[in-house]
Amino acid sequence: MPKAFLIDTSRCTACRGCQVACKEWHELPANKTKQWGSHQNPPDLNPFNYKLVRFSESLENGKIKWFFFPDQCRHCIDPPCKNEAEGYMDGAVIQDEKTGAVLFTDLTAKLAPEACEAVRAACPYDIPRWDEKSGLLTKCTMCFDRVSNGMLPACVKVCPTGTMNFGERAEMLELAEKRLAEAKKTYPNATLADADSVNTIFLLMDEPQKYHKHVVASVRTGLNRKQFLSSVFGPLRRPMQRAVRA
């Protein structure tokens, strides 16, 4: 039975507890940041931030409205990053059948920089980041070590507002519908983002574009040309490379 996150953005106050808890659990080093005009800091996901609360403000009827988006890996049910990576190497990106967690292993360090870029580009949510120094591809791990030991992911455990939820996928979908019905009373345009295809389900108060560019997958149905070619030739790539080398 796969697990899932439900992230109810209507409850998020952008305290960034999740962002810090994630960094603390994974013991990731600090980033050098500067004032760049937004509370969103660091400005983007990076090899040392698997989780980032994005801040977006818009003016509606003369009132400022904030849209907070605790961004992270969606742990797709059919992950394009895994399909792409398998074209180069087995085991660099794996999916745990029990929890549905999509994991980048240490083998990603053996992928060539171009391959890493291809895996990055395959993500419809712009999540993976490449650490130039270690050569590793990095992203949210669904706290796989914690979850396999019966604990909640660090970001969910820490959340004081009920924004971050985690559990069996079926339970999360049920909760999502309940919360959506509740949210619609205040926000008539409220939706669930890509709930059918991902295990990190975001409840949005308004249109996805108001939050961030990559809130919903850019290609929602079928494969684009690049993904199509990758899925067709992916499995052949390694034997071909081997043949070229020999």
Binding site: G17, Q19, V20, A21, K157, V158, P160
Partner: peptide
């Protein structure tokens, strides 16, 4: 490691960004 204490009735396991650090 440090994390919120779920048995404490005030924070029930939760923490803010400062407490989480």
């Amino acid at each position: 490691s440090t994390e919120g204490d779920p048995d404490y009735p005030i924070n029930q396991g939760a923490l803010c960004a400062k407490g989480a650090a």
